[in-house]
Computed example of a mutant assay.
Amino acid sequence: MSETELPGVDSKTPNAARIYNYFLGGKDNFAADRDAAEAVLAMAPEVRAAAMENREFLVRAVRYLVGEAGVRQFVDVGAGIPAERPVHEVAQRIDPDAKVAYVDNDSVVLVHSRALLGGRRGTLVVPGDAREPEAILDSPELALLIDLDQPVAVILIAILHFVPDSDDPAGLVRRLLDRLPSGSHVVITHLSDGGVPDDPRIAQTRALYNGGLYFRSRKEIEGLFEGLDMVEPGLVGVGQWRRTAGDDTSWWLGGVARKP
């Protein structure tokens, strides 16, 4: 990506979506993002593999939701820059009529998503912030594609660990699901403190994100699913979810749950 390709976009300040894109091997990032990502990798080289496992978890979750749970509508909140095997491609390989709304508040993400997804059947790119769930659900743009009277899978992949406690991440999940019918699902992955909250790498990594990254305990992450029915095997390392082999990524936990 050219440093001057997108007018009005700050290419000098590291951006979480672009850093994650770099971890996944993408090219939609700037030098500042690559430098920040490499600083993280210098402290914790396993982060890149964990990011890949996180993506594979999402693919397996979408396949489960379409193929076994019968979900045909997805709202991907904090979707990030489109990566290989985006949600709509995975879902529509099973059912071509599956619909996916990608939601993000990052100007870079919106520009790239619209460029890559414009005109794709069954997809929509909607501006929205995970901290304002009602605004997402009330969006006239969302209503063009998603029927909130039918089951919806809300995807919150690697987004809630950017939400501080003061914004009540568990409450945001409840507010998103409250408006949706029985049979709706939520898919969440979240950085964990690995049971070692004083690990110096946590503080060092948070500093690279200017303190805006929150490693939570397993108990706190479990609280994000309160009142919902967890899909087996529950909350596990993303590499182990519905997979016979894989690393137990205790730093990155994931789960899928159904609204009763």
Results as ranks from 00 to 15, higher is better:
143 A>E: 15
227 G>F: 11
255 G>W: 05
63 R>L: 13
123 T>G: 13
198 D>P: 04
2 S>I: 04
191 L>A: 03
211 G>F: 08
25 G>T: 11
81 I>H: 00
42 A>W: 03
141 E>K: 12
94 I>Q: 11
61 A>L: 04
94 I>G: 02
62 V>P: 00
195 G>Q: 11
37 A>K: 02
135 A>P: 05
209 Y>Q: 07
129 D>C: 08
198 D>I: 07
69 A>N: 14
11 S>E: 07
84 E>S: 14
50 A>E: 13
157 I>A: 10
150 Q>S: 07
155 I>K: 02
259 K>D: 06
39 A>T: 14
18 R>M: 09
176 L>G: 02
242 R>W: 03
130 A>F: 09
66 V>C: 02
81 I>W: 00
66 V>Y: 06
20 Y>A: 12
131 R>M: 14
211 G>S: 12
149 D>Y: 00
3 E>A: 15
76 D>S: 06
170 A>Q: 03
63 R>P: 13
17 A>K: 14
190 H>V: 05
14 P>T: 10
256 V>N: 11
115 A>K: 15
236 V>I: 13
27 K>T: 15
100 V>T: 15
194 G>Y: 01
189 T>M: 00
56 E>G: 11
195 G>A: 14
213 L>F: 13
199 D>I: 06
249 T>V: 08
153 A>G: 15
247 D>L: 10
160 L>Y: 03
123 T>W: 09
227 G>W: 12
135 A>F: 01
79 A>R: 01
213 L>Y: 03
131 R>C: 13
119 G>E: 12
68 E>C: 03
170 A>N: 04
60 R>T: 07
112 H>N: 15
144 L>N: 04
199 D>L: 12
172 L>P: 04
66 V>H: 10
242 R>C: 10
238 V>S: 07
231 V>D: 07
94 I>R: 06
219 K>Y: 12
1 M>P: 12
180 L>S: 06
41 L>P: 14
113 S>I: 00
137 L>D: 05
162 F>A: 07
119 G>F: 09
240 Q>E: 14
87 V>I: 15
31 A>M: 08
8 G>Y: 08
98 A>R: 07
203 A>R: 11
25 G>F: 08
210 N>I: 08
66 V>N: 10
162 F>Y: 09
149 D>S: 12
123 T>I: 13
61 A>H: 05
114 R>D: 09
118 G>H: 09
128 G>V: 06
1 M>T: 15
255 G>D: 11
59 V>P: 05
22 Y>E: 15
81 I>R: 00
214 Y>A: 07
209 Y>R: 01
46 E>S: 15
75 V>C: 00
1 M>H: 13
17 A>F: 09
216 R>L: 02
102 Y>D: 07
174 R>S: 11
